[in-house]
Amino acid sequence: MTPRQRLWLFAVAVAGLVACYLWAFAGLPGFGDYPGPYGPAILKRVITETNATGVVSAVNFEYRGFDTVGEEFILFTAAAGMSVVLRQLRGERERQSSPTDDAANRQVPATSSAIRIVSLLFVGPTAVIGWWLATHAQTNPSGGFQGGVILATAFFLVYLSGEFIVFRRLSPIALLDAVEAIGAGGFAAVGVIAVAMSLPYLYNYLPLGTIPGAVSSSGTIVLISFLVGIEVAAAFLLIIGELLEQTLLRREGSS
């Protein structure tokens, strides 16, 4: 099929898709006229039931906790799949060329001092902010997922500042694998413990605290958010680490 024929087929298909879209949107209530009973029902009872003032995290880890377990395992599987796909790659390349041969012909530019200083300056605050976000899910706009990604970003800054050897030593693959497994398995285990206490899976069985929105309130939400945070950080570091292996092999020979 030539590209022009493909484009005509695409035009016909997309016209049909857009027609169905517009028909569907015509049946929706207008933008801003949200009528649904689910949202206001949750908002009315979230503080009395969970003592959490961050409603989105409460929904994520308590009311829709089962969906979040599934999403977290998608993340886990994607990181594991990348390790499998790219590890075979490394074995093949090592047979064809040794790192020192390549490194002799490559000119590696040194990182400028400005980038080094600014990146290293920001590593500490970024790590603190990521950690704070991952552990305060029930009060402010925070939670395991975004806290974990920002924590991983702190490690990226170390790489960007030119210290790839330090980055590699700070995040060895065995440790990242273990941390990721603890995060994902811990989340599932919190739910299984509830079943062992003859409650529904992922029921909130820890004490709820007295002040809504305090750090110690809202039971399992804090624990689950922390576990999700370390799991997401480890998964992103694993992903970047796998992609970095090839460049690191070359640079170690020259720097």
Partner: peptide, 13 residues
């Protein structure tokens, strides 16, 4: 919340 996620993921990672 979605802003934080999108900023960290879509603009950096």
């Amino acid at each position: 919340d979605v802003t934080l996620s999108e900023l960290a993921v879509g603009a950096i990672a």
